[in-house]
Design a protein around this nucleic acid. Structure first.
Length: 213
DNA sequence: AAAACGGGGGC
DNA sequence: GCCCCAGTTTT
C-alpha cells in the first residue's frame, strides 16, 4: 500500500467507524489506570467481555487505592468471565501496590517505567502512552500487526517488528488514531480467519485480499 | 523463535 | 469437546 492510499484508507475508515459498536479502547475514556486495567484483563479475552469487566471494576474500584481495599477474592469475582482471573487479579494488585509505593499512586508516562510493571508489555505500555498521555507511541496488537501486513504496508514477522517498521514509516498524525481505528476495523471487517473482504470499504488498496491471519 | 502460561464462553 | 479471544514472560 502506498503512502497516498494509506491516507485515503484512514480517511474512509474514519468516516464509517460510527457504524461499529464501541469497543474497550473506544469507550472507556483516557484514564491511564483504567487503560492499564483493561489491557491486563484483555489478554486472550474477547473484547466485549473485557469491556464489561472493566466497567464493573470501574464502578467498584477505579483507582489503585481502591483495588487494594477490596480482597483478591472479590476482585476475582468481579473480573471472573475474562478467564485467567486468578493470575489477572494478582497482577492488578501487584501493579496497584507498585504504583502507590513507587509512583505516588499515579501511572508513569514513560515507556521504560511502564515496562517495569508486571504484566505490562509493549502493547499495553504504548497504548497508555498514546491514549492517556497523548505521546507519540504506537501500540501494536495482533489486529494492527495482521492488518498492516495484509495491506502490504509493512512486511514483518512479529508485533515488535511491526512497531519498529511503523515508527520508521507511518506519518506522525496517524500515530494517535491507528490503534483505536484499526482495532475496530479488525474486529468488524478485517477478521483474523475470515476477513469480510466482500464488504471492505478499502479493498481496492489492499495487496493481500483474503489472506488468513 | 518458540513455548509456556492457564480459563470462560459460544457453538 | 473444540474453537475463539487487545498478550506477556520464560526458555
Amino acid at each position: 500500500m502506498t503512502d497516498e492510499n494509506l491516507g485515503k484508507a484512514f480517511a474512509i475508515l474514519q468516516e464509517i467507524k460510527g457504524q461499529w459498536q464501541d469497543n474497550t479502547v473506544n469507550s472507556l475514556g483516557n484514564d491511564p489506570f483504567l487503560v492499564l486495567v483493561s489491557c491486563v484483563l484483555s489478554h486472550r479475552t474477547k473484547d466485549q467481555v473485557t469491556k464489561e469487566a472493566t466497567q464493573r471494576l470501574r464502578a467498584v474500584a477505579p483507582t489503585p487505592e481502591d483495588i487494594l481495599k477490596i480482597s483478591e477474592e472479590e476482585l476475582s469475582q468481579i473480573i471472573y468471565p475474562v478467564g485467567f482471573y486468578r493470575r489477572k487479579a494478582k497482577t492488578l494488585r501487584k501493579i496497584a501496590e507498585i504504583l502507590i509505593n513507587r509512583y505516588q499512586g499515579k501511572v508513569p508516562d514513560d515507556l521504560e517505567e511502564l515496562l517495569k510493571l508486571p504484566g505490562v508489555g509493549r502493547k499495553t505500555a504504548n497504548l497508555v502512552l498514546t491514549v492517556s498521555f497523548h505521546k507519540p507511541a504506537i501500540s501494536v496488537d495482533t489486529h494492527i500487526h495482521r492488518i498492516v501486513n495484509r495491506w502490504g504496508y509493512v512486511e514483518t514477522k512479529t508485533p515488535e517488528e511491526t512497531e519498529k517498521a511503523l515508527r520508521e514509516k507511518l506519518p506522525l498524525p496517524y500515530w494517535q488514531i491507528i490503534n483505536p481505528l484499526l482495532v475496530l476495523f479488525g474486529q468488524n471487517i478485517c477478521l483474523p480467519r475470515q476477513p469480510r473482504c466482500f464488504e471492505c470499504p478499502i479493498e481496492a488498496f489492499c495487496e493481500k485480499r483474503g489472506v488468513k491471519n
